[in-house]
Design a protein around this nucleic acid. Structure first.
Lengths: 340, 340
DNA sequence: CTGTTAGCGCTTTCAA
DNA sequence: TTGAAAGCGCTAACAG
């Protein structure tokens, strides 16, 4: 194998100083056109590749940003990531993706790994609240001078920016739509309401009921995680009630799908007997034989916004002085599962 | 903001040499227990974090490996990545994920970005063949001394390892199963057969027909990409034939789903009128009201194997001397869509 | 067991 | 317009 060519190799070959090569490569205005051209041509010929590591060591910037998400194999997160990439690539940043698999320990580990890798910032959807995150983040902000941007799931921490959607509106609109369909007993599949997103969707649901003179029945509110199995279990509970619901607003497409499977299994008809709506507008909601009403969170936009906030902070010079909270507006997508 | 602490800060505080600190931090056996403990404790107190960049610059290794895939938002690729992570994290490597979105230009760009980031290896599912990849890769292997491992989609290049599944068997088994169901006119949705995976699935299909005395009808073979729309289009063509098929073996779950949608739209019954099977065992094939027969490619295993091959090469000292071709065995998962 | 020194590849003062 | 030299943080060879 042949050694990588460095600016010294070029310098030696041309009998000039390495510093000159460096400047020429960077198109410094202080260097004569002739030298610049000469250097750049020889660099090309010698197959020179800049060593970013050295640059990073020197400048203290790595031009890498870390993105932490629970998992990448769903449309929502992978779209957010795509949005981040689209915004950041042109600026010369690379994107390092880490998955937490909803494991708090792994999340902390990921953060530390990223710090070690000298990333210039972290964009993340926080996946755990049990550990005293504030400490971790406060240390992060103070010790290093690294901007952090939360998207989707956030925690309110001074100095940390966030990009979220108006989950309250998402919950409100979904519920209102079900009410408009004539539903009177609307159930809600919620999730850990320590997370703002779930709390807000829940509150939107409550408000819509209230605004329309419907009573809040605690029996119709079930906490479950965002997966099929939990959706099925929740549906079972609801269908076993003496007075079963005539609609379900789920804060997750996955549990909505689970619920649908269970409802059908019992021989009930959707939307005739029970209307169902989900949240996130995952592609499968559209592809199903029975397409599912859902709320689009504009993940691509969310990613772009998060990246923009990061860029703003980095470019501001004082990364953690300015922090910003962006709230995007979601859109209810009405499909067969709730359309009587 | 406070400057990051370096080994020099620790050294100064303890009145010892930086080298000693470095050794102590690395648990060198040449250092007294007392010093080691002292150093490590002060390091902890001073909130010292090793600067991996400096380490990388020094050692020439970054402990980062790059993974390049067309996209991360499908189960297959995200599972492979998960497998890679599981194998590599414990070894101290980090995983940088890049998406090509099937764009050849972007793929080359990604490779170069990764090289620039000084990654220690590349694991990838190659997504384009049109550019003279050999050159790119040969240069990569010779100039740098970086191991490359192909998984899923590969190209046969000397010195490059690969981990794939036995696609021939996947194609053969699927077709044989359809034949066993009594199907006589079995169509095949293939894809660009310049890629070995599609060629092999196709050949398995052909062989199964032949072994069972069925004739190969070119009209029943349609080239399409792995998405719903292409599946629909292909199905339309097939259903418009004078003698329409009684089964479809698709080399993609996505186009299988598209085909199913089209078949239903025409009022035909699955599996009664037409049996359908896909490839990849994407989760939705299981969740559908009509679960789809598919071929499991064991992506988690594939990722682990690819990572192992990478580790073997790195640890061999001469990364590109040893290359290895691993072939995993797929499994046909039979579901309603093909079970008469 | 520990210190000194050099060097990974690059940029950036300071001088010329 | 260019060169010399220092330094980013770390490790490793050599010396003691």
């Amino acid at each position: 194998m042949q050694k990588k060519t460095t600016i010294y190799d070029i310098a030696k070959k041309l009998n000039i100083a390495a510093a000159t090569v460096s400047r020429a490569l960077n198109n410094s205005p202080k260097i004569s056109k002739a030298t610049i051209e000469l250097v750049q041509n020889t660099a090309l010929k010698m197959n020179y590749k800049q060593n970013k590591l050295a640059l990073a060591l020197k400048s203290g910037k790595s031009f890498n940003v870390g993105v932490i998400v629970p998992r990448i194999n769903n449309n929502f997160f992978s779209s957010v990531i795509r949005g981040i990439e689209e915004k950041l690539y042109p600026e010369g940043f690379h994107v390092i993706i880490c998955q937490t698999h909803d494991d708090a320990k792994l999340e902390i580990k990921n953060i530390n790994s990223l710090i070690n890798a000298q990333i210039d910032g972290i964009l993340m959807s926080i996946s755990n609240l049990e550990i005293e995150k504030d400490d971790v983040f406060n240390k992060l902000i103070k010790t290093k001078n690294i901007p952090i941007v939360f998207f989707d799931k956030k925690k309110h921490i001074k100095g940390i920016s966030s990009v979220t959607i108006d989950d309250f509106k998402g919950g409100y609109d979904s519920t209102k739509h079900l009410i408009d369909q004539g539903c009177k007993r609307i159930a809600h599949l919620t999730n850990n309401r320590s997370f703002e997103i779930y709390k807000n969707r829940y509150q939107g649901y409550v408000q819509a009921l209230q605004d329309n003179g419907l009573e809040l029945d605690e029996n119709l509110i079930i906490e479950s995680r965002s997966n099929l199995e939990d959706g099925r279990i929740a549906a079972r509970k609801l269908l076993d009630l003496k007075k079963r619901p005539d609609a379900i607003f789920s804060s997750s497409d996955f549990s909505a799908l689970g619920a649908i499977q269970e409802i059908k299994k019992r021989g009930l008809k959707i939307p005739e007997d029970i209307c169902v709506s989900g949240f996130s507008n995952e592609p499968f909601t559209k592809f199903m034989e029975l397409p599912i009403t859902s709320v689009d969170q504009f993940p691509l936009e969310m990613g772009k916004e998060a990246a923009q906030v990061f860029l703003d902070q980095v470019n501001s010079g004082e990364p953690n002085k300015v922090s910003k909270n962006v709230i995007l507006t979601p859109e209810l997508i009405i499909r067969k599962s709730s359309l009587k």
